[in-house]
Design a protein around this nucleic acid. Structure first.
Lengths: 168, 168
DNA sequence: GCAATATACTAGGACATCCAACGGTTTGGA
DNA sequence: TCCAAACCGTTGGATGTCCTAGTATATTGC
C-alpha cells in the first residue's frame, strides 16, 4: 500500500478540466474516473479474498452463476450473456476451472453446436466457501453506507439499462 | 452488441443472495457488481473513442496528466502515484508512448535513480485532440443525470478516501 | 435435398495489470 | 566514513480481456 496522497487526484483533474474551459463535462469526467478507480480498488479486494481458493473474480463469477442454476449446468453462450463477457473469456475461465476439477464440459443432448458447463461436487463446495469469505470480507465491509448502496444500485441500474444491458 | 437481456442479471443475483440467507450483504454485493459492469461499459466507450488516435485509456491518462503539469514533465514514480497504478504499468505505457513519439525519457538532473517523462510537441497536440473527442463522445454523453453525477462524485469520493487513496 | 446463412466454440495475437526479482542510486545510522 | 537499508525503474512471468479468423454444427430457403 502506498501512503495516501495529500489531495484527491480526481478532484484536481476536475478543477483542471474547469480551468481549461471544459466545465460542462468536468463533473461527468470526474464521476467516470472515480468509477474506474473504485472498480480497481474493489477488484483488488475481491481477488485478494479469492486467492487462497485459487480463484480469480472471473472464475468465481462463473462458479457462482452455475451454483444458482438449478441443474448446476449452463450452455457456454448462456453464461457469456448472463455474465456480460466475451465468449472467449468464458472459454478461458472454463479451461482453468476444468483443469482445477471444478467444472466439466459436456455435450448438449440435442444441439451439437453447444457445450454445457457443469459444476462438479468440488466446484459446488468451493463456490460455497468462497462466497462465504467474499460476503464476510468484501461485501460485508464495503465501506459504503446503507443509503449510498441503494443510491448506487439505482443510479448504476439506470445507467446499465440505458446502455442496453437489459430491458426491465 | 448483443441484444438486451429481458431481466437485470444483477437484480437476479441480489434476489439469489437474499433467498440463500445472505440478505445482510445482498445489497452491497449488487452495488459492487454493478460498479464492475459499469466500469466495463465505460471503458469500452473510452477505448472506442481513443482507438483512432492509437491510444488506450492507460496511455491517454498519462498524456493528460503530463499535459497538466506546468513543465510538461513528471518523474515516473510521481506519475505512478497520481494515476494510482503500479510502476510497471507506467513503464509499459511510457515504452509505447515513446515508440509513438509522444513522450521522451530524460534523466533527472539531480537524482540518478529517477527518470523524467516529458511530453513532445506531437504528444501535446494529440492529448488535446483526444481530450476533445472524449469530452464530446463520452463525458458529454455519459447517460448519468446531473444530480446522479454529483451523487456519484460524493459517494465514490467518500469510498476512495476510506480506502486510503487520499486524505482531504 | 442441397447450398447458403447463422450459430457456437476454439485458436492466436495485442494489451494492460499485477507480482517477484534484479541491478543501480541515494540516504542515514553505526 | 562506510555499509546496510530504502528507493527507483526495468525485466520476465502469469492472468484476464478483447478482437479477428477459422472450424464445426444447425437452420433456412430454393
Amino acid at each position: 500500500m502506498s501512503p495516501p496522497l495529500p489531495r484527491d487526484p480526481i478532484a484536481d483533474a476536475q478543477r483542471n478540466w474547469e480551468s481549461h474551459g471544459w466545465s460542462d463535462v468536468a463533473a461527468p469526467m470526474a464521476a467516470i474516473t472515480a468509477i474506474m478507480r473504485t472498480q480497481q480498488i474493489l477488484l483488488a479486494r475481491i481477488e485478494g479474498a479469492l486467492r487462497p481458493f485459487g480463484l480469480t473474480f472471473a472464475r468465481y463469477e462463473l462458479l457462482a452463476l452455475l451454483s444458482f442454476a438449478r441443474s448446476g449446468a449452463l450452455p457456454m453462450n448462456k453464461a457469456s450473456a448472463l455474465l456480460q463477457v466475451h465468449p472467449t473469456s468464458v472459454t478461458n475461465a472454463v479451461d482453468r476451472l476444468q483443469t482445477a476439477g471444478l467444472v466439466v464440459r459436456s455435450p448438449h443432448p440435442t444441439d451439437g453446436r453447444t457445450t454445457l458447463i457443469e459444476l462438479t461436487a468440488e466446484g459446488r463446495t468451493l463456490a460455497k466457501r468462497a462466497t462465504a469469505v467474499l460476503n464476510a470480507e468484501v461485501f460485508g465491509q464495503s465501506g459504503f453506507g446503507d443509503e449510498d448502496v441503494n443510491q448506487l444500485i439505482r443510479i448504476l441500474g439506470d445507467f446499465r439499462r440505458g446502455a442496453g444491458d437489459f430491458t426491465d
